[in-house]
């Protein structure tokens, strides 16, 4: 009797039971509920009313929602490639320098440990049009700075510049990957007459492409979900120029109390993120190179 109870299977399921309960209560259950809620009109003050697909239909006629999708897409499409490129350049430089490598890596990682409201508040001050440091420095070289967070044409750009500050995680991952590239590969290419750019293009980049892939996926997913920066810096203004999708979801759910409508937004965002993630995954066979593939073949 005791033996039948005390098997490895029982132990395993007992050990992981906190996660299973958490998964059912906080993930699986809410996901199902979210689908149902998205088919209702529910203000929490009154009982939910079933409205079928009305929320989804209305969303695509809601110009604020489609604007929020455009804003989010712009934010992602501009910030992610530049972040990856900057991180890659800095990591490559850190990989090739002789002294202070660890000290400089520490410096570049620093902003990543202080994320959140404090960082946004700091950048609000940096971007102040009249007395902020950025426009002061631009003024020194004769450029009249824009009104940044107050200008519909520049507010999103300000948030994008802000995001460049936090590329420490990407740099650390790239640097670790670069340090795993055997020197003999680069040396061999150089001896065969390749110049530095050719070595980077044909040796270094393919060798670290799994790290690039990882960073692109993670950055993309997180920038589709950006919220704090936009909420604290501009509350979505001016004129909705920084009203990203999650911010619109927040406003609909917790300011307008439209739980059904907000759930529908969440699902559309979910499928957009899923689509782009799968797109990058699918494309990865074209450009991501895993060393084990060749080892297996040879």
């Amino acid at each position: 009797m005791r033996k039948a109870w005390n098997t490895d299977a029982t132990k395993f399921y007992l050990l992981i039971s906190p996660w299973i309960i958490g998964f059912l209560v906080f993930i699986a259950g809410p996901m199902l509920a979210s689908v149902v809620i998205s088919l209702t009109e529910w203000s929490l003050l009154r009982d939910p009313v079933f409205v079928g697909l009305d929320n989804y239909r209305n969303l695509f006629r809601d110009s604020r929602f489609t604007q929020s999708l455009r804003v989010t897409a712009r934010y992602t499409l501009i910030s992610v490639p530049i972040k990856i490129l900057l991180a890659l350049i800095i990591a490559m430089l850190l990989d090739r320098i002789k002294y202070f490598r660890n000290a400089l890596r520490t410096v570049f990682y620093l902003p990543s440990v202080v994320s959140g409201v404090a960082v946004v508040v700091l950048w609000i001050w940096m971007f102040n049009p009249e007395i902020g440091l950025i426009n002061y420095l631009l003024g020194l070289v004769g450029i009249p700075g824009p009104r940044w967070l107050y200008d519909p044409n520049w507010a999103l750009e300000a948030l994008i510049i802000m995001s460049f500050w936090g590329i420490g995680r990407e740099i650390v991952i790239f640097l670790a990957a670069l340090q795993g590239v055997p020197d003999r590969l680069r040396e061999a290419a150089m001896i065969d007459g390749a110049n530095s750019l050719q070595v980077i293009r044909n040796v270094t980049i393919p060798m670290i492409s799994p790290a690039i892939f990882f960073n692109v996926v993670m950055d993309m997913i997180s920038s589709f979900q950006v919220f704090t920066d936009a909420y604290v810096a501009t509350e979505g203004g001016p004129l909705g120029a920084t009203r990203v999708t999650v911010l619109y979801l927040y406003q609909q759910a917790f300011q307008q109390l439209r739980m059904g409508y907000a759930s529908a937004i969440a699902w559309i965002l979910f499928f957009i993120i899923l689509f782009f993630t799968l797109l990058v995954f699918k494309s990865s066979s074209l450009w991501v190179y895993y060393e084990s593939e060749v080892k297996g073949g040879a």
Partner: peptide
Amino acid sequence: PGQVTLIPQFI
């Protein structure tokens, strides 16, 4: 993405 569980969790 946390958004799809957010509202039911809140409720």
